[in-house]
Design a protein around this nucleic acid. Structure first.
Length: 190
DNA sequence: CCTGCGATATTCT
DNA sequence: GAATATCGCAGGC
């Protein structure tokens, strides 16, 4: 089992976000592997990025964002959903990449069980949003600040990088500040 | 197909 | 008090 290493993550969040397309996000619990191909990401920078959780400095919620690249940052949003991010850059930068969508690869039965009836009716809905993929993969707040290079339950495998002509960059979703930045990356659907 | 709404933690104003 | 890196459901066309 191969993993992306700290050198991959210790770069600008925009580069990491672009390069995470086509990689495999994996979780393992009780011997069951669930995995999906990353097809949509967003980069969030530090203080200069007015859409980033880190723009006002560390708080109890965003503390993991200020670790070094390669750790997980999992936050609770709208009082309802958990979202999974990969911390990037150097310690103290406050950068991260939000994983917005995956295509299920392994453990689809487990994902359907976790996601419930809506996903069972239409399997394209299993993990096509940031709050959905955390449920599908069994990602919990206990995994916040997990080291993705060494943690036994969550990691990212190299997969196959997506070539430039298959990648589109657009504005980030659900934000009102810094909308001019095209820091959302998707694999072209086909 | 679309639009509106409730859920309600965390943080800032 | 208001905004927010969301989602599923109800209801209308």
């Amino acid at each position: 089992m191969q993993r992306l290493l700290h050198t991959f993550y210790r770069r600008d969040a925009r580069l990491v976000a672009r390069d995470l397309l086509g990689r495999i996000l994996v979780t393992s619990s009780e011997g069951i592997r669930t995995a999906g191909r990353i097809v949509e990401t967003e980069a969030y920078l530090g203080e200069q990025d007015l859409a980033s959780h880190s723009r006002h400095g560390p708080t109890p919620r965003n503390a993991a964002m200020f670790l070094e690249g390669g750790y997980a940052y999992i936050y609770f949003i709208y009082g309802v959903h958990y979202c999974f991010n990969v911390v990037t850059g150097e310690p103290g930068n406050g950068q991260a990449v939000l994983i917005r969508a995956i295509e299920p690869l392994d453990g689809v039965e487990s994902m359907l069980r976790r996601r419930g009836p809506a996903a069972a009716r239409n399997q394209r809905l299993i993990a096509d949003g940031p709050g959905k993929l955390t449920v599908a993969l069994g990602i919990t707040p206990e995994m916040n600040a997990a080291d993705l290079v060494t943690h036994p339950g969550i990691w990212i495998e190299p997969g196959s990088p997506v070539p430039d002509d298959q990648v589109v960059a657009t504005p980030r979703i659900g934000i009102k500040r810094s909308v001019e930045n095209l820091w959302r990356w998707q694999e072209r659907r086909g």
